[in-house]
């Protein structure tokens, strides 16, 4: 049997300013990471995925719908274009860090329910597509431009 203790550190910088930092493992305690203090907040972060196409990885962070978390969203302009640094730490039995992973995301919105606030993020960088740089449609490439959308490259 193996056991892993997982602590997540959430460092958000809304587009409107007012940086906030939270961690979700040490209940009711402040923890220091990189020389700065993280308050406890009961959030969870999940949903980060990667695929072969290299699309943006999406992550969502769930907070209970409290006055504090609603303020977090409202003051952060609905989580649009906020900058999130999410650090995941693996801890040993003495609650000391064994391994740490840092990910960076950009806010793309938020949603509310009666119990939860969901903040949605995606990675800032997307993969470079096969058509990069984008081709420009010219008459030499597509011939006469039709009045409908049926354009075929020649």
């Amino acid at each position: 049997m193996s056991e892993i203790r997982i602590a997540q550190y959430f460092d958000i910088k809304p587009a409107s300013g007012g940086q906030r930092r939270f961690q979700n493992y040490f209940v009711g305690q402040k923890k220091s990471l990189g020389g700065v203090q993280y308050d406890f907040a009961p959030f969870r972060a999940d949903g980060s995925i990667a695929n072969l196409n290299g699309d943006n990885a999406i992550v969502r962070v769930l907070f209970p719908a409290t006055e504090f978390s609603i303020k977090l969203v409202e003051e952060g302009d609905g989580n649009r274009l906020s900058e999130l640094t999410l650090t995941t730490q693996w801890l040993n039995a003495a609650e000391s860090m064994v391994r740490s992973y840092v990910e960076y995301y950009v806010g793309i919105g938020a949603s509310f329910s009666e119990t939860t606030i969901e903040l949605r993020f995606r990675t800032a960088m997307d993969s470079v597509g096969a058509q990069f740089p984008a081709r420009i449609l010219t008459r030499s490439l597509v011939g006469d431009l039709p009045i409908n959308a049926q354009i075929a490259l020649q």
């Binding site: 193996s2 056991e3 892993i4 203790r5 979700n24 493992y25 209940v27 969870r44």
Partner: peptide, 11 residues
């Protein structure tokens, strides 16, 4: 049958 436990809080 192997088990992995993940702990998400200290209280």
């Amino acid at each position: 049958g192997a088990v992995v436990r993940r702990s998400f809080g200290n209280r």
